[in-house]
C-alpha cells in the first residue's frame, strides 16, 4: 500500500474533510441531545452513546489519520492494544467482585 495516502484527495481535497467534520459535529450534537433530553431510558442510554462514539473514532481514524487507504500495518497497530485492555478490564472487574 502507498505511504502517500494523504495525497489521494489532491485537487478536490477539502470535500471529504469537510463532510467528516460536519458528521462529527452532528454526531456530537445528537449525543448531547440524547443525554440532556433523556429520550431513551437511562439504563439503555450507554448503548447508543457507545455506538456513536465508536462511529466518531472510526471517522477520525480513517479519514483524518488516513488509515483508509494507507498501509494496513498502521491499522493493526491501532487495534492490537485493545484486546489487552479488555483483558485488564475483565481481570479488574473479576478481582473487585470476588
Amino acid at each position: 500500500m502507498s505511504d502517500q495516502a494523504t495525497h489521494q484527495y489532491s485537487g478536490h481535497s477539502k470535500r471529504p474533510y469537510t463532510r467528516i467534520f460536519v458528521a462529527l459535529v452532528a454526531v456530537t450534537f445528537v449525543e448531547m441531545l440524547l443525554t440532556l433530553q433523556q429520550f431513551i431510558p437511562h439504563e439503555f442510554l450507554p448503548i447508543p452513546l457507545v455506538i456513536l462514539s465508536f462511529a466518531k473514532i472510526a471517522l477520525v481514524a480513517m479519514y483524518y489519520m488516513h488509515l483508509y487507504g494507507d498501509n494496513k500495518l498502521f491499522t493493526y497497530m491501532f487495534l492490537v492494544p485493545v484486546p489487552f485492555v479488555l483483558l485488564i478490564m475483565a481481570a479488574l472487574i473479576i478481582d473487585l467482585l470476588v
Binding site: 450507554p46 457507545v50 462514539s53
Partner: peptide
C-alpha cells in the same frame, strides 16, 4: 480520539 472516548464515558454516560 482520546477525548471523544473520555467525553462519552465521563460526561455522557
Amino acid at each position: 480520539v482520546v477525548w471523544i472516548v473520555l467525553f462519552t464515558i465521563i460526561y455522557l454516560i
